[in-house]
């Protein structure tokens, strides 16, 4: 028997598994980010009737704004600090502190620490929207920025 034969079916199996189960992974490009997105998807299914997956387009609209009713009048959109180009370096609206890019292409560590992700949503949804974000909004937002 040639030694290379048994490896082929294993490779095929691995490819099949990653195709079937890796939708979030393929969309996000990082196992931790995929886990975070899967968590929001499970919440969104429970929260939002008729939830049919995340949308980068809705995420873009959320990111750009403008929104009304935010706690901080100077920041009607995420883009107010993070700039309209998510791959660019942001700037805190008041202190001027630099903010690392939101786009995953420019900052591959974005959305890979669940506690950090939740902390920022908890704060900035209130600052920009005046309310908590839904799980669908969080997933849309990450989906948009994962493809930027």
């Amino acid at each position: 028997m040639r030694p290379t034969r048994p490896t082929k079916p294993i490779l095929l199996l691995a490819a099949a598994v990653s195709l079937g189960a890796g939708v979030a992974l393929a969309a996000s490009g990082d196992p931790e980010r995929a886990r975070i997105l899967d968590g929001y998807a499970a919440q969104a299914k429970a929260q939002t009737p008729g939830f049919a997956g995340f949308s980068a387009e809705r995420g873009r609209a959320l990111y750009l704004g403008p929104h009304a009713g935010g706690k901080v009048a100077d920041t009607p959109g995420c883009a107010s600090c993070h700039t309209r180009d998510p791959a660019g370096t942001g700037r805190h609206y008041k202190t001027g502190r630099d903010i690392l890019p939101m786009a995953v292409s420019a900052n591959p560590k974005r959305f890979t620490d669940p506690a950090e992700v939740e902390k920022r949503f908890e704060r900035d949804c209130v600052n920009v929207l005046g309310r908590a974000c839904t799980a669908q909004e969080k997933g849309d937002f990450i989906t948009f920025l994962s493809n930027q």
Binding site: K71, V72, K94, A115, K119, E122, R123, D124, N127
Partner: peptide, 9 residues
């Protein structure tokens, strides 16, 4: 926090 939500765990 000076007009901004800066809450922490």
């Amino acid at each position: 926090h000076f007009g901004e939500n800066a809450s922490l765990p």
